[in-house]
Computed example of a mutant assay.
Amino acid sequence: MMDLKQIKIGQLLENSVKENHIERERLCSFFNCKAKDIEEMYGSDTVATDILIKWSQLLQYDFFRLYSQHLVLYAPPAANGYSQTGTKRKDEIQELQFRKNIYTKEIIEFIINKINKGEMTREEVISKYRIPKTTLYKWLNKYNGYREEYK
Results as ranks from 00 to 15, higher is better:
residue 132 P to R: 07
residue 71 L to W: 12
residue 89 R to P: 07
residue 98 F to Y: 13
residue 41 M to S: 10
residue 96 L to M: 15
residue 29 S to M: 09
residue 18 K to N: 12
residue 59 L to H: 02
residue 119 E to D: 10
residue 131 I to T: 08
residue 6 Q to I: 01
residue 81 G to P: 04
residue 98 F to N: 14
residue 118 G to H: 03
residue 127 S to R: 13
residue 108 I to T: 10
residue 81 G to W: 05
residue 40 E to A: 14
residue 80 N to S: 13
residue 96 L to V: 12
residue 150 Y to V: 05
residue 11 Q to K: 09
residue 112 I to E: 00
residue 16 S to H: 12
residue 30 F to Q: 03
residue 131 I to C: 05
residue 114 K to G: 00
residue 88 K to Q: 15
residue 2 M to N: 03
residue 30 F to N: 02
residue 76 P to G: 12
residue 34 K to S: 10
residue 123 E to T: 13
residue 129 Y to C: 06
residue 94 Q to S: 13
residue 129 Y to L: 05
residue 151 K to M: 10
residue 141 N to S: 06
residue 31 F to W: 11
residue 27 L to M: 07
residue 64 F to I: 02
residue 125 V to Y: 08
residue 6 Q to W: 01
residue 95 E to D: 09
residue 109 E to H: 10
residue 141 N to V: 04
residue 117 K to Y: 00
residue 114 K to R: 09
residue 120 M to Q: 07
residue 12 L to P: 02
residue 40 E to R: 15
residue 9 I to G: 01
residue 129 Y to R: 06
residue 105 K to P: 07
residue 66 L to R: 02
residue 49 T to P: 01
residue 117 K to M: 06
residue 139 W to N: 03
residue 60 Q to D: 04
residue 119 E to C: 00
residue 102 I to Q: 15
residue 102 I to R: 09
residue 122 R to D: 09
residue 72 V to I: 15
residue 59 L to S: 04
residue 62 D to V: 02
residue 142 K to H: 04
residue 16 S to A: 15
residue 71 L to E: 13
residue 39 E to W: 02
residue 137 Y to L: 08
residue 48 A to E: 13
residue 32 N to G: 05
residue 9 I to Y: 04
residue 82 Y to F: 15
residue 144 N to S: 12
residue 19 E to T: 09
residue 125 V to M: 04
residue 9 I to Q: 01
residue 138 K to R: 12
residue 134 T to S: 12
residue 82 Y to A: 04
residue 33 C to T: 10
residue 79 A to H: 00
residue 145 G to Y: 04
residue 114 K to V: 01
residue 11 Q to I: 03
residue 115 I to W: 00
residue 56 S to D: 05
residue 14 E to R: 13
residue 45 D to F: 11
residue 2 M to G: 05
residue 147 R to P: 00
residue 108 I to Q: 10
residue 151 K to C: 08
residue 40 E to K: 15
residue 55 W to H: 00
residue 140 L to Y: 01
residue 47 V to L: 10
residue 73 L to I: 13
residue 86 G to K: 08
residue 48 A to Y: 05
residue 120 M to L: 12
residue 93 I to C: 13
residue 140 L to Q: 08
residue 17 V to F: 09
residue 73 L to R: 09
residue 57 Q to H: 04
residue 59 L to K: 00
residue 145 G to H: 02
residue 19 E to N: 14
residue 108 I to C: 00
